[in-house]
Amino acid sequence: MSTAAPTGRPPAWFRSSYSNGAGGECVECAIHDDAIHVRDSKDVEGAVITVGGEAWAPFVAAFRLG
């Protein structure tokens, strides 16, 4: 995991499907090269957490299981 901003071409950010657009807590993700970047949708200039795909897949699988 890293908190470094993505380099090279700009990542294409997308908002969580759980976001209702009413200003609640929400994250945005971007798949960029071999990494996944996550940021707070209310602070797009703030910190970005970056994880590799090999760590992201098990995280998403565990999240879906509850």
Rank of each mutant, 00 (worst) to 15 (best):
P6I: 03
Y18N: 05
G8D: 06
V27K: 03
E45M: 05
S41E: 02
A57Q: 13
V27R: 03
D40G: 08
T50P: 00
G52K: 13
P11G: 13
V27P: 04
S16E: 05
D34P: 00
G24Q: 11
F63Y: 13
R15F: 00
S19V: 01
P6Q: 07
F14G: 01
S2I: 12
G52Q: 10
F63R: 11
A47C: 09
S2W: 11
R39I: 02
E25R: 09
A62T: 05
C29M: 15
H37I: 00
A61G: 00
A55I: 01
F63N: 03
G66K: 07
T50N: 03
V48I: 15
I36S: 00
A35K: 12
N20L: 05
F59E: 01
E28L: 06
R39V: 02
S17V: 07
A62Y: 02
R39K: 09
A35D: 09
A22F: 12
P11C: 05
V27Y: 12
A47N: 05
R39P: 08
E25I: 00
G66E: 02
W56T: 04
F14V: 12
E54W: 10
T3I: 12
R15L: 13
A30I: 07
P6E: 04
N20D: 15
D33P: 00
W13P: 09
A61V: 11
H32R: 06
G24D: 12
H32W: 13
T3E: 11
A35H: 14
Y18F: 15
V27T: 07
R9V: 01
G21F: 09
S41G: 04
I31K: 03
A62V: 00
A35L: 12
A61D: 14
T7W: 02
G21V: 07
C26V: 06
A12G: 02
A57C: 00
P58H: 09
A12Y: 08
R39G: 02
S16G: 08
A47D: 07
G52R: 15
G53C: 07
E28T: 03
P6V: 04
A47P: 14
V48M: 09
S17Y: 04
D43R: 15
N20A: 03
E25K: 03
P10C: 02
G53Q: 10
G53P: 01
D40M: 09
D34M: 05
T7L: 09
T50Y: 00
T3S: 10
A62E: 11
A61F: 05
H32D: 08
V38T: 10
A22W: 08
I49Q: 08
R15Q: 14
I31V: 14
V44T: 15
R15I: 12
V60D: 01
G53F: 14
A55D: 13
A5I: 02
V27M: 10
T3L: 14
A4Q: 15
R39C: 04
V44L: 09
M1F: 08
I36Y: 06
H37P: 01
H37Q: 03
P11M: 05
S16I: 02
A22T: 11
T50D: 01
V60A: 10
S41C: 15
D33M: 05
C29N: 04
V38R: 04
V48K: 11
K42N: 09
A4T: 14
S41D: 14
V51F: 11
G8Q: 10
T7N: 07
Y18C: 01
I36L: 15
S16L: 04
A61S: 11
C26I: 06
C26W: 10
A57P: 00
G24F: 06
P6L: 06
T50S: 15
A5H: 13
R64E: 02
